[in-house]
Amino acid sequence: MIFNKNNNGSRELRELTGNYYATNDFSKITGEINAATDEIIELISQPVYATIEGYYKSDASDQADIIRKLQRPIALLATLRLYQKNDLSHEDSGRKVKLDQDNEKLPWQWQLDRDDAIHLEEYYKAVDILIRALNSSDIQQWKSSKAYKQSQQLIIRNGESFESYFPIQRSERTYLLLVPFIREVQKLQVERAYGAGWSALLTEDNDDETAAHYAACKAVALLAMSTALRRNQLQLIPAGVIRTYVAESGAMNSTPATLADIRLLAEWMADDAATWIDEMKRARDGATVERNIMPNNDPRNKFMRL
């Protein structure tokens, strides 16, 4: 465990989260810490976690920054789950609510939901910071991890790059979860549509990219998001992305997105991707003729249906 050195776990959680009492019994949260650690390990791999945990146990002062970046998302998720479970106490005679009637009031459900959402958003941001730090680090266990090696074989290699083609709030966590969909649509659709020369296209980067590279990346990003939505992987989609698109049709931003909204959004993305695949082919072939996207309103080209 990457906490509780010198029996100082509760104080560490206090410093990392800002809302955990340093006087709390640390043993009550160890189960949640272990569960949160397992979720982080799924993203960054066991060897990476073990390496940073080794830094922590050996008091490697030069690695204090990456240690803290790994501790923070674990601490945020563990404390959130502890708070959710502690809304009610569990006793032999049943579940109870213990409340000081003179000084305390029960929160409304909307307040609990908002608090949960804030904590989750902080957790997601902390995970993004951790992954960006790993990407720029010299930790070889990360460079040799399956997630990192797979991402380097793709035309879009990280969340920051993905953001320039589709808004995911620069979420590295979302990008890693989308990697299977990116691999699928790149291999089965975009690469096949491009044909010979795809390997050369992969060597380009965002700083000096051709029109074909830009169009290919747009198509991959849109198709990956559309595929994730169609398969009901809604937990991959950052908050506000669906509402931002659906709001253009006149829906209220505060209204939850329905399944019909989500299907419509997936269709829009797939249609947009088809357009970008066409643009990719034109750029590949060196087409210079501008496409006329306006309808031909020649007065001789009119008809009426009764």
Rank of each mutant, 00 (worst) to 15 (best):
W142D: 04
A75H: 11
R170Y: 12
D115E: 13
P107K: 03
D38E: 14
D87M: 05
L177Q: 03
D100I: 13
Y148Q: 08
A60N: 09
N158A: 08
L106N: 01
K146F: 00
S89L: 11
D102V: 10
A147D: 03
W142S: 04
Y56E: 00
Y55N: 07
K105S: 06
A78K: 04
R95E: 12
S144V: 14
R81F: 07
D113N: 11
K69P: 07
E163K: 01
P47C: 07
Q84N: 08
A50E: 12
Q109N: 09
A50K: 07
Q141G: 03
I41P: 02
I139T: 01
Q141D: 10
L120E: 14
D100L: 07
A64S: 10
R132T: 11
P73N: 15
A36H: 08
T51Q: 14
A75N: 13
D102L: 11
A126N: 08
S136Q: 03
V127A: 04
E172L: 04
R95T: 05
I44Y: 02
S161A: 15
A117Y: 06
Y55D: 07
K69I: 05
D65Y: 06
A75S: 15
L154A: 02
D128A: 06
S151Q: 11
D62A: 09
Q109A: 09
W142N: 05
T79H: 08
Q84P: 02
I156K: 00
L76E: 02
E104D: 10
R132N: 13
I156Y: 00
I156C: 00
R95C: 09
L120T: 10
S136T: 09
Q150P: 04
T79I: 05
Q141A: 15
S61H: 08
E42S: 01
K69G: 11
E160S: 14
D100C: 10
Q141I: 02
D115P: 01
L99N: 13
A50V: 03
H90W: 04
S89C: 10
R81E: 13
